[in-house]
Design a protein around this nucleic acid. Sequence first.
DNA 1: ATAGGGTTAG
Length: 388
Amino acid sequence: MSMRTYVTWAEMITGFARSGDSVSARRFFDQVPTELKNVVTWTVMVDGYCSNGQMEMAREVFEAMPRRNFFVWSSMICGYCKIGDVEEAKAIFDRIPVRNLVNWNSMIAGYAQNGFCQEALKAFGNMQAQGFEPDEFTVVSVLSACAQSGLLDVGKDIHNMLSHKRIKLNQIVLNALVDMYAKCGDLINARLIFEEMTERNSACWNAMISSMAVHGQCKEALELFCRMEKSNEKPDEITFLSVLSACAHGGLVDEGMEVFSKMQKKYGLEAGIKHYGCLVDLLGRAGRLREAYALVKSMPMKPNDMVWGAMLGACRIYMDMEITEQVAEDISTLNSSIQSGNNSHYVLLSNIYAASDRWEKAERTRIEMENEGFQKIPAHSAFMPCGA
DNA sequence: ATAGGGTTAG
């Protein structure tokens, strides 16, 4: 087609990349006639790789670009953050000759999403020091950093800043505020904002429900869930995780079991491994170890580390050596810890044995770990005499 | 090009 412009090519490349087909996107990119190959076609190709998490390919094309715009820098930063490589994202950020607000927002969001809360807050300060005014995107990420690290005072400062900077209180900003107050333990203010909201989506309900569970208000969390059921916002998978966790914390076993079956029967949501993990935790904490273990053995999917962790946690609380032995056997036959590179349940197992004065068993668990090539093995557990 | 909600253990 002779009428093709660079826009047409860019749309083709983006279309394939968005559907996850980087290979076809690249094929079109390579066919763009030289006279139409401009900064936009390069950028959409890089962005395509970034959104598919193919950062090595993204990097290759990015480095070959003759010119770069604001967009491509942000794509690279977000791409690296999405695969958890914050250091590489920062290296890209440092290379930007002239930064814009979105570049800053992308970096701050990347920090916050990967748990680098101090860095997020620092970058937020630097950004303002360089004369940038924060917008909705900025404050949402910074509020999330405060929520994760429990910095209520900083969170309140941001809240105050919202009106001064004329930042719009859209749904996402309000949700971030609710989440910040709730996670920081200020349930009064969280509730205040929550109740004043005219529209509440599931993220909002979930933030409130899960925080109430964390802060011990389990009955209230369940009440809120009932209210949500009557609202026009349907509970989703995350809602059920939050509610099941509330039941586990409050020892509300029957309620939890009911919620679990309601999730499938009434709402047609399929229980995932995380829901099973919650249920194992719920039964386990309540001392119903045999039911918990039966559930682990009958789950439709392979138990993961979380499930074993919940199971072992319950074994430790109730010192049930019989079930512990069975779990130990399951773990060593399934070797699930090797796949995930997580040796925490070996440590848990070791703790349980140690606590029940079965030192030889504890020793054997350690030797097993050593044989399987784990490098660093804790010298002693919380239950063992320290200062060896 | 950028933003919000989730399970376990200590």
